[in-house]
């Protein structure tokens, strides 16, 4: 039984990766389980400067999931490097996927250049898809030429594999993915959350202080799966699939659609041991479906006959 996969040239023990924003900078999950069992994890979205994020409430219940409008709260790249990563290194001996966000192309390049110098960073995941910030984030991920500009700027400052994280809130996600690939991206991850909202019936006003939020959880799984399937067919570079993944079966389905690795997001917030449980359950799920090597099933659903 082989759970190992190769993500942009780097082998990981299994394809399970906690998604950015649901796992902090990792070390706090050590009180739930040994995070070294993970393939890797994507750290909290990091920006050039410290950000407090959006006003409260930032969280709402939704059918089949939840909405969040956290707004990229993080201590800024300097403090991430001086405080969070050293803390993480005390308990974690693998590489991380450093998730980066920005409000200008220079922001992205600045933050990526800083993180490029950190040994613990194995991959840069560049978030051009945050729906909860204004004047940045998702606006870079909804236009192919803007997405290409960010990709080029980041590629110019790092030797590490660059994975562009895409938004589902677009008409043609394949066009965005292709633009990133042509601009030099080493991988594509998708999907970020879907834009949604709730209204508080008692106050008759939007429930989230930010009015809108990102919808995640099992409800978005089929949408995410379809987009991973589409993007796999449009690009040659590896695809990291995410969106509503909660079980080992979901991981297999994502991989069959074309994902080389699979990120798990909202599930970590409901069950802090979600990723560990999925990893533990993967061998049995593989056996059930006659799979001996996970690499064999990447994109297998695309094969004819």
């Amino acid at each position: 039984m082989n759970l190992k996969v190769k993500l942009c040239g780097k082998e990981i023990d299994n394809p399970v990766i906690p998604a950015s924003g649901t796992f902090g900078y990792g070390y706090e999950f050590m009180q739930w389980y040994d995070i070294n069992v993970l393939g890797t994890f994507s750290c909290k979205g990091t920006t050039k400067d410290e950000r407090f994020g959006n006003p409260l409430p930032r969280i709402a219940e939704a059918p089949g999931g939840m909405l969040n409008a956290v707004g990229l709260q993080n201590p800024g790249v300097e403090k991430v490097i001086s405080k969070e990563l050293p803390h993480l290194k005390e308990v974690y001996n693998k590489k991380i996927m450093a998730n980066v966000s920005g409000f200008s192309i220079d922001d992205y390049a600045y933050t990526c250049e800083k993180l490029d110098k950190e040994d613990i960073v194995g991959w840069l995941e560049v978030n051009i898809s945050c729906p909860n910030v204004h004047g940045g984030g998702m606006s870079f991920g909804t236009d192919p030429s803007m997405a290409a500009e960010v990709t080029k700027a980041v590629k110019a400052v790092t030797k590490k594999p660059v994975i562009m994280k895409l938004s589902p809130n677009v008409t043609d996600i394949k066009a965005i993915a292709s633009a990133c690939e042509k601009a030099g991206a080493d991988g594509i991850s998708l999907i970020n959350t879907l834009m949604g909202m709730r209204i508080n019936l008692k106050t008759k006003r939007p429930l989230l202080a930010n009015t809108t939020g990102g919808y995640s959880g099992p409800g978005i799984f089929p949408v995410a799966l379809r987009m991973v399937y589409d993007v796999y067919s449009a690009v040659e570079i590896p695809v990291v699939g995410m969106g509503g993944v909660s079980t080992a079966d979901d991981v297999l389905e994502m991989m069959m659609a074309g994902a080389t690795a699979v990120e798990v997001g909202a599930a970590n917030l409901i069950d802090p041991c979600a990723c560990k449980n999925i990893i533990d359950e993967l061998p049995a799920a593989m056996e059930k479906y006659g799979i001996t090597d996970l690499s064999d099933i990447i994109g297998i659903a695309h094969k004819q006959g």
């Binding site: 902090g24 409260l56 930032r58 969280i59 709402a60 709260q73 917030l269 802090p272």
Partner: peptide, 17 residues
């Protein structure tokens, strides 16, 4: 009291200044 995502510090859903 606050609306929370995880309840154990992971999601920054209930941060206050």
């Amino acid at each position: 009291e606050q609306r929370m995502g995880c309840g154990f510090g992971a999601c920054m859903g209930c941060s206050c200044k």
